[in-house]
Amino acid sequence: MPSKRVARVGRGCVACGSCVKVCPVGAIQVWKGVEARVDGNRCVGCARCAGECPAGVIDVKAREELA
């Protein structure tokens, strides 16, 4: 069952991969060297990626807010 929270990457991602390195479940991948993308089905909403993002473009929100 997915968590109640999920990470989302906003505009301004620099594709540095910092979030990928800290994700404990491998829910984030850098897509085509352009931006990070979160697999919402795997994300556990821990917010480690948001804390590590040097661009500050990752938010963790309640799933119902993003629907």
Rank of each mutant, 00 (worst) to 15 (best):
V44R: 02
Q29N: 09
M1D: 08
E65R: 08
V9F: 02
D59M: 07
C16F: 01
V44W: 03
A27E: 05
W31I: 14
I58H: 00
C16M: 02
R48W: 12
V22D: 03
G40W: 11
M1E: 05
C23A: 10
A67L: 15
A55E: 10
A62W: 14
G33R: 11
S18M: 03
C16R: 00
A36M: 10
A67G: 15
G45P: 06
G33N: 11
V22W: 03
A15F: 07
C13S: 03
E65L: 10
A50L: 04
V14E: 13
V9I: 14
I28L: 10
E65Y: 06
G26M: 06
A7E: 01
V6C: 01
G12P: 05
S18Y: 01
K21T: 15
G56W: 04
V25M: 03
V30I: 15
V14A: 13
G10R: 08
C53F: 10
A67K: 13
C43I: 07
G17P: 08
A36L: 11
R37C: 03
D59V: 15
A62R: 12
C13Y: 02
G56P: 08
C23I: 13
K21F: 04
M1Q: 09
C46V: 09
P24C: 05
G33C: 11
V25H: 06
C16W: 01
A62C: 06
D59L: 13
A55M: 09
G33L: 11
R8T: 15
A36G: 14
G17V: 15
C49S: 02
D39V: 10
V22K: 00
G45M: 04
I58D: 00
N41Y: 07
N41E: 15
G40Q: 13
V30A: 11
V44E: 13
M1W: 01
R48Y: 14
R11H: 03
D39P: 06
R5E: 13
N41D: 14
E52V: 14
R37L: 13
V60H: 06
